[in-house]
Design a protein around this nucleic acid. Structure first.
Lengths: 332, 332
DNA sequence: GCTGGCACTCGGTAGGATCGAGTGCCAACG
DNA sequence: CGTTGGCACTCGATCCTACCGAGTGCCAGC
């Protein structure tokens, strides 16, 4: 799409702008490696790049700034992911040490990502529903309230409060548990919502309440989102209003989930500015990578930063973390 | 400590400054209710309040701003908590509807608090350790890995990954579970770390691993912190650097916990600026209230805002939410 | 002791000059 | 014909100055 010289100039502008956040003039571009023409020629080419929509001028007598289209071209054709040696080692060390509960590990992984990139990091954890039930039981808390606790193959634990209208003794919880275990183990948790009743009246009172609760809470909080490094957004922008609106987005877990999911579904690994589809993120870019467990995409890792983010670094960091996270989760 | 007129003037300055964020001049104070002297007199009194350390002047020819000491006096002697009718109803409605898992409810409660006050809200949940174990079991996930799942009386569920060096069949998990249940139910989870072994060699391999894991993870993640409304901090300050440093604090759960705990331990319900003991919070104030379950303090609710926060509102909101939260948790 | 009056202070805003990085254009050159 | 050095021009950023006005401290008089 762009001849080699234009591409080099665009690359030089993007790379310098990412570093300095200042409009880049032709004088700077000629000092960039791979440029061996005069500043006048560069000016001509930059004017052309502007009319083609890759660059923009904040005002007449200023240098150029990449447009979304410019960043897009840079990401698609010019940037190759690269991670410095120290970071690579850091990632390896992290996953070698990683252990313990999955929730804790995912939270720690977001911290790793913000540490690597200096941007906000987001991880969508594997949905618990996907796993088969390994164990299910009802634990009485008070005479009328019990906790339905299900352990899933993925290592996740789901719990639901079951409250009844009348007092129940512990033996009944046990009988209901026995029925649920017989029916549910090996199936997804949601399956219990439609599993047959026992035919025994007192037990079925409990079971139907379990069904109702599972139906009510089945869908929504299926996703487990981990966000970290929101404070880095404040370092990326100098308009406090921008910071505020971005933070507002990051606080809404549902929005974050649908945002990442949407980007992944469109087959993108980078969404720049308006490509995110969210007006408050006009000055942001999102770099994502799905990760797989046993060949199946179960979640997404991503970083959110300013449009002038260090794409090579962010792409590499997200890719390698996603890959190693998937591998780590696969081996259980 | 202050005569009535000085107190009225201080109150007027604080209240107007909270609203406008602008230094308050004598001309504005005379328009405040309860002030029936001339501006010259007010000026004299304000000069006195300044030398006494309650007010400060950003520069010579500007109005006055409250100092930390000024806010402190306002909070201790002049402010009485007040919550508007709509908010009161909102709180009541929230807790009438509140149900389901405790984690979800606490997260929702932080949202309620930020909604009420427009400041960031923090809640420290009841420590799970405190509760007695209602149920404990080992669920095998892979031949070498099992999950220790303990249900506590509070409705909380604790889980720990137990990994062994050699393959184990499910029967062994069951036998270990039986032993743990016999020993542990009715005691705090930590007690299992010191409970006697079974004397049966194969089972004791598992049990000693359980002990080791409980010892290793026993103390730290004891606290469950819920933070919401961090984006409101960005609306409270116009220096982006201030926002960044405050957000950094809010992201560190351990810091937040020790901060709230420290304030409560000092018997305060408000910590203003340097009273928080954290330099980045010099421009912030923290309003907290412990909440009790069955007469015992099990957690804390709080809001974090700028030093010029609406103390009457924040005090009232935190107090009523803490109270109703405790009541709600007490009734189970 | 309170108050009106008054001179004074000083941050904020507006207008004007200057600076310089960067541009577009053009004529000349290989 | 593409490239280049030269040049006039643009315009944001910076600095200076003047000015305004909110607010002060002080004092004399009630």
């Amino acid at each position: 799409m762009l001849d080699e010289r234009k591409a080099s100039i665009l690359r030089a502008v993007v790379e310098e702008y990412i570093q300095t956040a200042q409009p880049v003039g032709s004088g700077h571009v000629v000092n960039a490696p791979g440029i061996s023409v005069s500043s006048a020629t560069v000016r001509n080419e930059m004017a052309a790049l502007e009319t083609e929509g890759f660059l923009a001028q904040p005002h007449t007598s200023a240098g150029r700034i990449p447009t979304e289209k410019g960043y897009r071209y840079f990401v698609d054709a010019l940037a190759q992911p690269s991670l410095d040696r120290a970071s690579t080692l850091q990632v390896r060390a992290f996953f070698d040490r990683a252990h313990g509960e999955i929730e804790q590990m995912l939270a720690d992984t977001t911290r790793l990502l913000t540490g690597l990139t200096d941007y906000a990091a987001v991880i969508i954890g594997p949905p618990h529903e996907a796993g088969k039930v390994r164990s299910v039981q009802l634990v009485g808390l008070t005479p009328r309230v019990a906790l339905l606790v299900a352990v899933l193959g993925s290592g996740g634990v789901e719990k639901r409060t079951i409250d009844l209208a009348e007092d129940v003794d512990d033996a009944l919880w046990l009988r209901a548990t026995a029925h649920l275990s017989a029916q549910g183990i090996g199936h997804p948790l949601a399956w219990l919502a439609t599993a047959p009743l026992s035919g025994e009246a007192t037990v079925d009172v409990v079971l139907s309440r379990v069904r109702a609760v599972l139906v009510a809470t089945g869908q929504d909080d299926a996703d487990h989102v981990y966000v970290n490094g929101a404070s880095r957004m404040a370092a990326s922008f100098d308009a406090v209003e921008t910071v505020r609106s971005v933070l507002t987005i990051l606080e809404q877990q549902l929005v974050v989930v649908s945002l990442l999911r949407d980007v992944v579904d469109r087959g993108l690994n980078v969404a720049i500015g308006s490509e995110t589809g969210m007006q408050p993120l006009a000055d942001c870019a999102l770099v994502v990578a799905p990760y797989t467990v046993d060949g199946e995409r179960v979640g997404t890792v991503g970083v959110l930063g300013p449009t002038r983010m260090n794409y090579p670094q962010a792409l590499a960091a997200v890719a390698v973390v996603g890959q190693r996270l998937g591998r780590r989760l696969s081996e259980g």
